[in-house]
Design a protein around this nucleic acid. Structure first.
Lengths: 242, 242
DNA sequence: GGTTTTATAGTCATAGTGACTCTTAAAGGG
DNA sequence: CCCTTTAAGAGTCACTATGACTATAAAACC
């Protein structure tokens, strides 16, 4: 960070700085990503991650939250409660054919939200199952893959899974998050034991169980506890990056 | 990432993009960081992280490696083998009082290197013990703290510790890395057992043990194995972020 | 030769987990 | 109303990994 004496900002080729969002959710036992369809060149008609420019007086984090609100059509208050986390920054010189664009990517984990009403400048915004995501514009496929990998890893040693759930949830729903992101089935009793014996992971909600749609014994409700880390971790079966 | 039709790059306030490096090493059983002394305002005379501008045609990763070579005075070949990893990106609008600067921070883990011969445009470059680092310029104190925390966490579930060691090292040296970064003593036999039973963490080096400077039985030599992840992890004592 | 120092080899008890079985509480069908 | 189906939740058992040790081996120093 040594800016030359008498440095003139305009003398350098300017960099544009954007944020891109990998917004993930679990719906119907499948991992979904929020994607927008591009309306103009390059990659017109292709799907891409939502995102946009960082404004002159805002941080990337602020820009990410603003874009998230615009693209999902949720209120600022709702978006303020969502889990948003910087993923990494993508800086390859030719990642955008028009000019030099550096993109700070964020991962957002959201509960199952209503279908987005494509606000902002996005032609169309939609949830797509992760496995059915077509090739994306720019390097967004790579970003989305990085986000998925990171989320999978973080489920092991953080309480992040609750970010995919509504404020009150059952242990079955929480387990579905793990199973969906990891793509492996987990033993129900063992999962239950692990979650309940980890202090601060979840706390029981008093009162009657939620109206159950299906058959079977209705499950007790829990909400996220105060803990953020998981010690010891909840390792996924079979070693590594499944 | 929706750039308006007919977008003119120069119409936007330009962002400068820099890389900052948190270069960490273990010398004399203490964690050290590589710092440079600033020669000009702002923060003239203050210590700061090494770093510099991302050039128009290079990626941030390339810029980081280039700066690392310049600041440490090491050859490109040597630097190519070092562990360099993107930490996160710092984008607060006022982090640099002169203009809008977005900085992509990298963490570098290096073995105990010779004292840097302050190359590049750094007035002076020097290794400082982590605990004795004075308040740094800009938000570099925060960056350095983030790097330390991240490295401490990654030691738990990756084989990263070998990046702090020379190509051939003893288990005692490897253990010193953990003890130094975590700031806690580890049980020697247990550490040994854990490392040796983890496939691919280290592999034995044939041949006689290294010339030992001190007393005691000379230790066998090992080099880093092929594995990058540690399953199950090597958790630091007493739960969390010590 | 004995002492010091450090590496390396074992031992033992216990927490945590994987793989199970069993019981309980609801819905639905006859 | 009883019986089946479904899923929640309780409990068992064996094994692995680990923390806390003790013991032996191999070098240097005096």
């Amino acid at each position: 960070m040594n800016i030359p004496e008498g440095y003139d900002p305009r003398a350098f080729e300017p960099f544009a700085v954007t944020v891109d969002l990998a917004v993930l959710t679990v719906r119907a036992d499948r991992l979904h990503a929020l994607l927008v369809q591009r309306g103009q060149e390059p990659y017109a008609g292709s799907w891409a991650l939502p995102g946009g420019f960082v404004l002159p007086r805002e941080s990337a984090g602020t820009a990410a939250r603003r874009e998230l609100a615009e693209e999902t059509g949720l209120s600022g208050a709702t978006v303020a409660g969502l889990h948003l986390e910087q993923l990494r920054t993508y800086t390859e010189p030719d990642r955008d054919p028009r000019m030099r664009v550096v993109s700070v990517a964020y991962t957002a984990l959201v509960p199952d939200l209503p279908e987005p009403r494509g606000g902002g400048d996005a032609a169309e915004a939609r949830w797509l199952p992760y496995d059915e995501v077509p090739p994306l514009a720019f390097d967004h496929g790579r970003i989305l893959a990085d986000a998925r990998e990171r989320v999978g890893a973080k489920l092991e040693y953080t309480c992040l899974a609750t970010a995919f759930c509504p404020p009150e949830f059952t242990l079955g729903e929480l387990r579905q998050v793990y199973e969906t992101v990891w793509g492996v089935p987990l033993d129900r009793p063992n999962f239950r034991r692990k979650v309940l014996t980890t202090p601060g992971f979840v706390e029981a909600v008093e009162g009657p169980p939620r109206r159950t749609g299906g058959r079977g014994k209705p499950a007790a409700l829990y909400r996220a506890g105060g803990a953020t880390a998981l010690h010891p971790p909840l390792l996924r079966p079979e070693g590594r990056t499944a």
